[in-house]
Simulated scan of single mutants.
Amino acid sequence: MGYSKEIISEWLQGMGLELKPSKTRLAHTHTKYEQEQPGFDFLGFNIRQFPAGKYSSAKSTNGKKLGFKTIITPSKQKQKVHYVQIANVIEAHKAAPQAALISHLNPIIRGWANYYATVVSKEIYSDIDHLTYQKLNAWAKRRHPKKNGGWVSKRYWQSIDGDNWVFATRKEGSSPLRLLKHADTPIVRHVKVEGESSPYDGNLVYWSSRMGKNPEMPNRVAILLKKQKGKCTHCGLFFREDDVMEIDHIIPKSKGGKDEYKEGSSTSTQTLPR
């Protein structure tokens, strides 16, 4: 393990960086070591490796099965902090209108769920949604102590788009304000970096296509490269590093075309090699 630390230190030195001892810890990700559970937390994520069979095992760069797979989830600490924040907001809105409570909760739920949308979060999202429902149910019943459970449910929950339990307002002639659910956030898996690519390798086309931005690439070009997944919309081929690129309008500006990025619109733009 000490050897790994030396390799990382040498790699960082090339960029003028160094490890800070007080914030550096070596940990096993697969097996228990000296009473420490495998895995570690980093930036709110828990990274751990689990034994896996031949069909689900991770592979090395040369295709060899490693016998385990890496699972990244929201850390237990961040799950607890997030739920406590939700519970505190509900508690602070005992006498507030339902719309006010929803308006305060939605940004909290949206931000947290989006942050963890690239890892294994679906089951955790469902768990937190269930805990939130229990807290909201207690909130609703406390407001109407003389009403039965059925009445309370009809007052604060609705059936919307096939979901029979949506915490939402009831307003005649207007769309209901609904509480977001963590589980409604789509999971979009992180795409592994190709080969030995690095943000420091100068491959502007690859990193612009991947991230939609690059300090050495014009912002408009980088955005379009990402939208087009690194391909030319005219010929369908991938751009190369030495291609000269130009932003063209599908409808020329002289004929009414607009300078905007609307996807699927005749006024959107495309990047073409010259």
Results as ranks from 00 to 15, higher is better:
Thr31Asp: 07
His249Val: 01
Ile8Leu: 14
Arg48Asp: 08
Gly63Ala: 06
Leu204Trp: 08
Ala87Gln: 15
Pro186Asp: 01
Met217Gly: 04
Thr269Gln: 12
Ile187Leu: 10
Ser266Asn: 12
Lys171His: 08
Lys147Cys: 05
Phe40Lys: 01
Gly236Asp: 10
Ile247Ser: 00
Ile251Glu: 05
Thr73Phe: 09
Leu105Ser: 04
Lys253Arg: 10
Ala138Arg: 14
His30Phe: 15
Tyr33Gln: 12
Ile160Asp: 08
Ser126Glu: 13
Glu246Asp: 11
Ser4Gln: 13
Arg189Ala: 06
Tyr83Ala: 02
Phe45Ala: 00
Trp151Met: 13
Gln13Ala: 04
Ile124Gly: 10
Arg210Pro: 06
Val193Asn: 05
Asn148Ala: 03
Glu260Ala: 00
Gly2Tyr: 06
Glu216Lys: 15
Asn137Asp: 13
Pro186Glu: 03
His30Thr: 11
Tyr83Met: 15
Tyr200Leu: 15
Val166Gly: 02
Lys262Pro: 12
Thr31Pro: 09
Arg25Phe: 09
Gln13Asn: 11
Ala92Phe: 07
Thr29His: 09
Val205Gly: 01
Lys146Arg: 12
Tyr261Pro: 01
Asp184Glu: 06
Trp139Thr: 05
Gln98His: 10
Asn219Glu: 15
Lys78Thr: 14
Ser56Trp: 11
Arg274Ala: 12
Gly202Asp: 11
Ile223Leu: 10
Gly202Met: 06
Gly256Ile: 08
Gln85Asp: 14
Trp207Arg: 00
Thr29Phe: 05
Ala58Leu: 09
Leu177Met: 09
Gln158Lys: 11
Ser60Gly: 09
Lys141Ala: 11
Leu105Asp: 08
Ile47Phe: 10
Lys59Arg: 12
Leu17Thr: 02
Lys122Val: 12
Asp129Ile: 01
Arg220Trp: 07
Gly53Gln: 04
Asn219His: 13
Trp11Val: 14
Asp259Ile: 02
Trp157His: 01
Asp201Cys: 04
Asp41Phe: 07
Gly2Arg: 14
Ser75Trp: 13
Ser175Glu: 12
Gly236Val: 04
Asp259Lys: 03
Tyr33Trp: 11
Asp248Gln: 13
Trp11Ala: 13
Pro145Leu: 03
Val166Leu: 03
Ser126Phe: 10
Ile187Ser: 01
Gly14Ile: 04
His234Asn: 14
Pro21Ser: 02
Lys64His: 06
Lys69His: 13
Val244Glu: 14
Ala183Cys: 07
Phe167Lys: 03
Gln134Cys: 00
Thr132Leu: 10
His130Leu: 11
Ala92Thr: 14
Arg220Ser: 08
Glu18Leu: 06
Lys135His: 10
Gly67Leu: 09
Gln98Ser: 04
